[in-house]
Design a protein around this nucleic acid. Structure first.
Length: 259
DNA sequence: ATGGCAATGTTTCATTGA
């Protein structure tokens, strides 16, 4: 079982690359972030032709999330948003796929420390922690994946001194990320030895990608039963190359069959 | 092997992202 997450930075622009990536990687589940599409404009037909069912929650211009599931896998209990937390922004979608509860998230960026958007980000992350506590109580096999907009540790940052205290790296954001883990999840990437300076996002500007000046802000968090089954956790850096890439690379995990 | 911001809509600039 392969679970993946990718911030595509406009599904409209990235659809050809998405279809290529699905054909090459054949994930069972792919969570998308920043689709930037109203539901009426979601390219469900094209994705169905590639062998995937689509579940989505979008809006014009900003945000927007989706879960794509390989044809034939059972999907139940699709849910939108964070229960009890009113939010106009479409950032969360959940579904149960073949016994695994998958939650796809697009965490707010936060713009700048101490801005209104930063305060929204921290409040939003606290609400997400509450939601995940309830999800885990109901679903022991829980995967939470997407763009968290937090680099959890200095080793997830190309230049920690440059980013120290900045948005995506500030202490309150890192504490909020650890609070998600404290619900009963692990950062799957750190279950394995990884090459140093592995990142999931690179700025479009200033040759950031060829210089590998990036951050690891996209994550796959797993509950204990799924961590047991996890055989690999990787970032597909190749997807950041070539013409019109997203600024994010897909992150994905391979799970062994349920014992 | 890579590329010097990109995507969107309010459109010829402003806003947002991270």
């Amino acid at each position: 079982m392969i679970l993946a997450a990718w911030n595509v930075n406009s599904l409209n622009v990235r659809l050809p690359r998405l279809l290529d990536w699905l054909a090459a990687q054949k994930p069972d589940v792919l969570c998308l972030q920043e689709t930037k599409l109203e539901d009426a404009k979601f390219p469900a037909m094209e994705i169905a032709a590639a062998g995937y069912a689509s579940h989505f929650s979008g809006q014009k211009t900003y945000n927007g999330v989706a879960i794509l599931v390989r044809e034939g896998l059972p999907v139940t209990d699709v849910a939108i948003g964070i229960d009890g937390y009113a939010d106009e922004q479409k950032r969360v979608i959940a579904a149960t796929v073949d016994g695994i509860r998958v939650v796809g998230v697009y965490v707010p960026n936060g713009q700048a420390v101490d801005s209104d958007k930063y305060r929204y980000k921290l409040a939003w992350l606290a609400a997400l922690a509450g939601m995940l506590r309830a999800e885990l109580a109901r679903h022991p096999s829980l995967a939470v994946m997407g763009d968290f907009n937090v680099a959890p540790e200095d080793r997830d940052v190309h230049d920690p001194a440059l980013w120290a205290g900045q948005v995506l790296c500030s202490a309150p954001e890192r504490a909020a990320f650890r609070a998600l883990l404290a619900v009963g999840l692990v950062d799957s990437f750190r279950l394995f030895d990884q090459p140093e300076k592995t990142f999931s996002w690179w700025d479009y500007r200033q040759l950031a990608f060829p210089k590998n000046r990036g951050l690891r802000i996209d994550h796959v968090l797993l509950s204990a039963p799924l961590a047991q089954r996890c055989r690999a956790s990787r970032i597909d850096r190749n997807a950041r190359k070539g013409e019109k890439p997203s600024d994010h690379a897909p992150v994905f995990v391979e799970l062994a069959a349920d014992a």
